[in-house]
């Protein structure tokens, strides 16, 4: 989940940004997915602050984690949306280079996540629901970030969100980059904009590890099934919010209106549920994510080299099996259909 920044430098300068791109390119699935990744990374997509300006009647940003400093890559605060008071946490990239540098290209440091935790806990205490907006290439991978415990901050933020006794609605608005995204993306409901992507590692990082070259990033993007529609199928995302025809960056107000409607609809539903039930359902939601089978075989597990007598016995045993045509072959157990399947 880590080698995410490889091959990014080209993207930053060469701005694939202003060209309105068609997400649909039916001929080549790899190209279609890659076009979506570019859309998700478009510099002019609405971020947390742009969305809030359009959907919130009031927003007061709160700063600082009370330990170390304030991280401009994460914004957090109190807002009023359609008369409803909420706590908002979101990631913030910049649209221009200056702002992007100030906001560390949207890559949060530990203090960003600790600020997020502080404000989300405030929401819990005040009885306010939490809305998070996720758009991040990944957490900041530098030495200072490691020194201050980026992994610990992410882990603790995830842990906190699994038990907060208040409704949480998460919207993936752009790049859902691995643990850096997940740290503020644990929700009762997880929504994603149509052209958003969500992945365990950046396609560049995945390609450079598994394909041994970052040039295969589009192939990696396809293999990881990182588009919003794929994530919906996998159950990681609960609902996809459609975008205006050429993508969210072409029409902020229309995008914001759709986001607002979806968020309010889910908040309405969540707020009607008792808190105990809500937190238990959230636990169950994540507890159920994963794909594995249970094989009914005791582990054969004798990796040591068999001794001479064993080999002789096997040889004879094998011969009798072959002669009678019966007897289980332990190697076959992998081919048998799964006894139980959980997805």
């Amino acid at each position: 989940m880590v080698d995410r920044l490889i091959g990014r430098t080209g993207r930053r300068g060469s701005s694939a940004t202003d060209l309105p791109r068609e997400p649909e390119s039916p001929a080549d699935p790899t190209a279609a997915v890659w076009a979506r990744v570019q859309l998700a990374r478009n510099l002019h997509r609405p971020r947390t602050l742009e969305l809030l300006a359009l959907i919130a009647a009031d927003f007061v940003e709160l700063h600082g984690d009370r330990f170390f400093g304030d991280d401009p890559a994460i914004v957090a605060g109190l807002a009023r949306i359609d008369g409803r008071r909420v706590v908002v946490v979101g990631q913030q990239k910049g649209a221009e280079t200056d702002e992007n540098i100030r906001r560390n290209f949207g890559m949060p440091h530990p203090e960003g996540y600790r600020k997020a935790m502080r404000v989300m806990e405030l929401g819990e205490r005040l009885g306010l629901p939490i809305v998070t907006f996720v758009d991040v290439p990944g957490a900041h991978p530098g030495a200072d970030s490691e020194e201050r415990g980026i992994a610990e901050a992410i882990a603790r933020s995830i842990a906190l969100m699994t038990r907060l006794r208040t409704p949480i609605v998460t919207v993936i608005t752009g790049e859902g980059g691995s643990g850096g995204a997940l740290a503020i993306a644990v929700g009762d409901v997880v929504l994603a904009l149509e052209n958003a992507v969500y992945s365990v590692i950046s396609p560049e990082g995945c390609a450079s590890i598994l394909w041994r070259t970052p040039d295969q990033a589009p192939a990696a993007a396809l293999a990881m099934r990182m588009t919003a529609a794929d994530q919906l199928q996998l159950g990681v995302v609960d609902e996809v919010i459609p975008e205006p025809h050429n993508g969210a960056h072409t029409d902020h107000p229309a995008t914001a209106a759709m986001v607002k409607a979806a968020v309010l609809r889910h908040l309405d539903a969540l707020e009607r549920r008792p808190l105990d039930e809500l937190v238990e359902a959230r636990y169950r939601r994540y507890r159920a994510l994963g794909a594995f089978t249970t094989i009914d075989v005791e582990p054969a597990a004798i990796p040591e080299r068999p001794g001479f007598t064993d080999r002789l016995r096997n040889l004879l045993g094998g011969a009798t099996r072959a002669a009678t045509g019966t007897g289980p072959n332990p190697a076959r157990s992998y081919d048998e259909p799964p006894a139980r399947e959980e997805v």
Partner: peptide, 27 residues
């Protein structure tokens, strides 16, 4: 080395699954 890339975001979701369970221990 971290989450398993070949299971995509389902691997990422294991971070939540595991931490949710250990958080209950802590409490």
């Amino acid at each position: 080395g971290g989450a398993r890339m070949q299971e995509g975001t389902l691997s990422l979701m294991q971070l939540v699954k595991t931490v949710a369970a250990t958080e209950r221990l802590r409490l």
